[in-house]
Nucleic acid binder design. Sequence first.
DNA 1: CAGATATACAAACGATCGGTCGTTAATGTA
DNA 2: TACATTAACGACCGATCGTTTGTATATCTG
Lengths: 210, 210
Amino acid sequence: MTHDGRRLRGLRSREAILEQAVGLASVEGLDGLSLGRLAAATGTSKSGFFAHWRDKEQLQLDAVDWAARQWAERVIAPAMAAPAGVRRLFALHEARLGFYGEGVLPGGCFFFAVQAEFDDRPGPVHDRVARAMREWQEFIRRQVAQAVAQGELAESVDAAQLAYEIDALGEMVVVHSRLHGGPDSLVHARRAVLQRLRALCPDPTLLPED
Amino acid sequence: MTHDGRRLRGLRSREAILEQAVGLASVEGLDGLSLGRLAAATGTSKSGFFAHWRDKEQLQLDAVDWAARQWAERVIAPAMAAPAGVRRLFALHEARLGFYGEGVLPGGCFFFAVQAEFDDRPGPVHDRVARAMREWQEFIRRQVAQAVAQGELAESVDAAQLAYEIDALGEMVVVHSRLHGGPDSLVHARRAVLQRLRALCPDPTLLPED
DNA sequence: CAGATATACAAACGATCGGTCGTTAATGTA
DNA sequence: TACATTAACGACCGATCGTTTGTATATCTG
């Protein structure tokens, strides 16, 4: 029952498979991704998956968790280095845009693809995705509320309202940039949130001018 | 070669099939939608499709066109009733939110589902969707530019920038409302654009207060 | 060492996928 | 009336889907 070599090897390939699965799912979705192609991409056999997961749905659920962890490490964590308040809020937005712009995932954003796929399909995957998105939205809202409490945003700011705006402006970068090619949407998304925050911030010098 | 009864009957069922296809695709996507289920939903046979379309891709392309026509009739046309300028711009946004809120399509928005599906997959369907989305974005941009020209928006407004914001804030309603249930996102999306326009409009009385 | 456990595989399963073929019935044209 | 065209169909095709089964091998436990 202890951490021995067998389990370690199992965990390694499990992680490698999940990383591939999240990358592929960011392009084709969690359902569009077939076990056959995932097997080919990972260099393993289809049937080998069932040593790690009972069925495809279990793999999908673990993929959601893996993507959420990746998001926490590559977007949230770097932004937490910025001082709390409006600067951290904008750092969060920029970290997200950086995640998209660097092409960490071949499809841009795992959660965008999966949201569009499962927003109408009830089931465990829908629930898990909804929870992850709710936590993300709630996290942004808390950062807004903290900035208000610190006096870095006007007291009239509705935290849930501003959180929706920041999230929407950031999320739509994925499809706009991929569908129309250019990096225009990255610039638009960055500037939209920056100017919005500057307008609401009593001390705009906390934020870059452009 | 004239418009006779045969062709009329063909066109009728063709339209009925496309309407069903667009509705189903708004839920499961254009590829997730299978010909078998589409046949069951329309009460016809799979093989009957191939009298109207050479293959599935042709049906997908026609579905995109059909959805674009529906969008023009149910969103753009009503908004054109409003006087040109900032009022028409906001009417456009409200017409879109109404389209989503009324549940015209079971999946909320055909183009949202299809964008997420095809933004990374090159091919004719990708190109057709990209063109439709580019035209829509361009249409918003022209409405912004006209409002600026009429003096109903500040001259400093970057039309493409504001168009991106309006579109992003409207589009993300689909997934937010469906994933988290409540109509909060509809309120947030409406208020976000309304306050943004009011802030940029020299005569805010043109727009409702809330 | 023996026995249990876990990783991974090839082969095959029934179901469903997009698509083809040949046919029927209805509607048009000559 | 004779012939061409069209919508629509049932039956079937090879491929692929998610999944099951049985097996071989490597690792840990006793």
